[in-house]
Amino acid sequence: MAEDKNSIDIDYVANLARIDLSQEEKDRFQKQLGDVLVYFEKLSAVDVEGVEPMAHPFPVYNVLEEDVVEEGFTAEEALMNAKHQRNNQVIVPKVVE
């Protein structure tokens, strides 16, 4: 993890986000996002004691549906954009743990 609190450990985060970045991009993001984090520091001074976090603009409880089946995709529809497929399944290269 990063030592400086306004410095992002780009390698760690890019790995979590599963995006390869060039060294140039890493350097640029490091600097740009460092500036953004400095800007974010505005928040650290705010007193939020006892304030509820807002997850939804207008929360309501129990938006539920009855358990009734509706028609879905055929295999063809489901995979119409899958370039790599066989036997109506999506092919992925070897999954390594």
Partner: peptide, 17 residues
């Protein structure tokens, strides 16, 4: 979502967006 649940169906026939 209301796509059907079943066991042993042909692959990728129980999906939707």
């Amino acid at each position: 979502t209301r796509a059907r649940c079943a066991y042993g169906e042909a692959p990728n026939t129980l999906t939707n967006p």
